[in-house]
Structures are given as C-alpha cells and as structure tokens.
Amino acid sequence: MASESISVTTSDDQTIQLSRKHAQMSQTINSMLEDSVGADQEAIPLPNVSSEVLKKVIDWCTHHENDPAPVEKVKKLNKKREYKAKNSTISDEWDKNFVNAELRVIVDILLAANYLDVKGLFELMCKHIANELKGKTPDQIRERFGIQDDLTEEDKAAMRKAWGATKNDS
C-alpha cells in the first residue's frame, strides 16, 4: 500500500510533502507515481517549480480537492455545448481572489500548472490572462504585460488597413 503523502523536491532544493490526493491532481506527478509503484519512497524532483509557486499550487488544489473530475472527451454529440461553454468568466469567488496577484506570480503559476498538468488550474490562469487581454488596445496590452513593440511601421500600416482599426491606437 502506497503511503498517504508524497514528497517532492522543488527547484530551490526544498522538500515538500503533499497529500496523495493533491499529488494526483497533477497528471505529471500522477503518472510518475504510477510508473514507480512500490518504489515511491524517494522524493520526486520537480526541477521546473519553485517551492513558493508549488505552495500556491497546493493552495489551489486544497480548495478544489473535492471538485468533480473534468469530463474527458466530449464527443461529437456534445460538441455544441462544449463550444458554448468556452467563455472566460471566472465564477468561483475564491478563484477570483487567487488570480488577483502580481503578473510575475501569475506567469509562474501558469507555467507550473502547465508543467504539472493540473487541468483546472491551467484553465483558470489562461482565462485570467485572456480576461486581461480583453477590450484593451494594443498599446494597453504592451504596457500591461511589458511587451516590446517590434512591429515595423509597414506591418502596422498593413494591419490597420486590413483590420479597419482606428488611427489613434497604433
């Protein structure tokens, strides 16, 4: 019988214990566990995740540990529903609070969620960034995310012409 808690080693060499339930919310860790049944005494290395970020991820997992598992593989019959459901509204109050963080933290959590393959968290962070992109002019987006404007005037002119944008938002 496998033990009830799993230890992992983060990028900053910290060893962190997490419950089996939380560990299994990460597809990445879950498959590592399955690969090494019976030999799970050693800490699992997570070279891409810092302890600070992992703690955030665990916070999220703790809040969502009793969520119903996402329904996999919606087949053709349900396609319509699937497409309709794809809007970026974050309905959970706790989640709203959770994403209310510095951009750097958001980016780190998103990358960790991607690496660890925690579906719900990944989705949440993507939605959050999509919401930040919504309704903003290109200028505002650059400013918000610190993106350098590397488009030439020619590119811009072509895009303006093609997309019928107003003159004053470059």
């Binding site: 794809k86 809007n87 970026s88 993507c126 939605k127 999509a130 919401n131 992109l133 919504k134 309704g135 903003k136 002019t137 290109p138 987006i141 650059r142 993106i147 350098q148 404007d149 590397d150 488009l151 811009k156 895009m159 303006r160 997309w163 944008a165 470059s170």
Partner: peptide, 14 residues
Amino acid sequence: FLDAEDLCRVGRVS
C-alpha cells in the same frame, strides 16, 4: 478564450 475582435487587436501587439 478571446473573441474575434479581441484576437484582431491582440494581433497588433507584436
């Protein structure tokens, strides 16, 4: 998660 209008705008960022 973006709609067509937003996607057009995002395309003009970089």
